[in-house]
Simulated assay, not measured.
Amino acid sequence: MEIVNCISTGYERLVSIFLKGKLVVCTVESYDKYLKEGCIDSSLIGVFKEPVNFRLKYAFINDKEFSNGFFQPIENSPSTILTGKVKFSENNEKVVISNDFLGELIIEFENSVCVKDNSLISIRGELQLEIQ
């Protein structure tokens, strides 16, 4: 995975990454240093070999649009629609799913939801990258 661009929004960074031949936009939280909004954070640009995790924050069940795996409908935005199989539910607001493009990721819902293990769901939220 390669981070090709990183712009600060304060403590959060909006990053563009190259993953499996596709440009993907997500956020990265960075509490170690505050950068003025709009500044480029060159410390995060480059190739990452460390383990990374993806998380979908502020998510909700997306019953109006059904994506074929992974889709970012707004250019230069971490807004993401994805489809995945529920691996297990930690509670009514957090589940772990498996997605063909991103692999296993945590979904944090805005409100309590009831989903069954092994069910296929479509969700929409903000994609976040977690660098270990």
Rank of each mutant, 00 (worst) to 15 (best):
F54R: 01
G46D: 02
I106M: 07
T83I: 05
N53Q: 14
P73W: 10
E108W: 07
V47S: 15
P73T: 11
E75L: 14
K116N: 15
E75T: 11
T80K: 01
A59I: 00
Y58C: 04
K85M: 13
F109D: 00
G46F: 03
D117G: 06
N99M: 07
L102S: 03
K116F: 11
I106F: 02
P51H: 14
E50Y: 11
F101L: 10
E108M: 09
L102I: 03
G69Q: 09
E50N: 14
E104Q: 03
I45V: 09
T83R: 12
F54E: 00
S79E: 10
K116C: 13
E108H: 07
E104V: 10
E75M: 11
C114D: 15
S98I: 09
L105Y: 06
V47I: 15
T80G: 01
F66H: 12
E104W: 04
E90W: 04
Q72H: 08
F71V: 06
G84K: 05
A59N: 01
K57P: 00
G103D: 07
F101T: 06
N99S: 06
S119N: 05
I107W: 05
F109R: 02
V52S: 05
G103N: 07
I74E: 01
I106W: 02
N118W: 08
I107G: 03
I106L: 10
K64Y: 11
L82R: 00
F54W: 04
V115D: 02
N76D: 12
P73C: 09
G84T: 06
E90T: 07
D63N: 14
N91C: 09
E108C: 12
D63G: 13
N111W: 03
D63M: 08
P78G: 04
V52Q: 05
N91V: 03
E93K: 12
F71L: 07
N91R: 10
N53V: 05
F54Y: 09
K87D: 10
Y58T: 01
E90M: 09
F48V: 11
N68Y: 13
Y58K: 07
V86S: 04
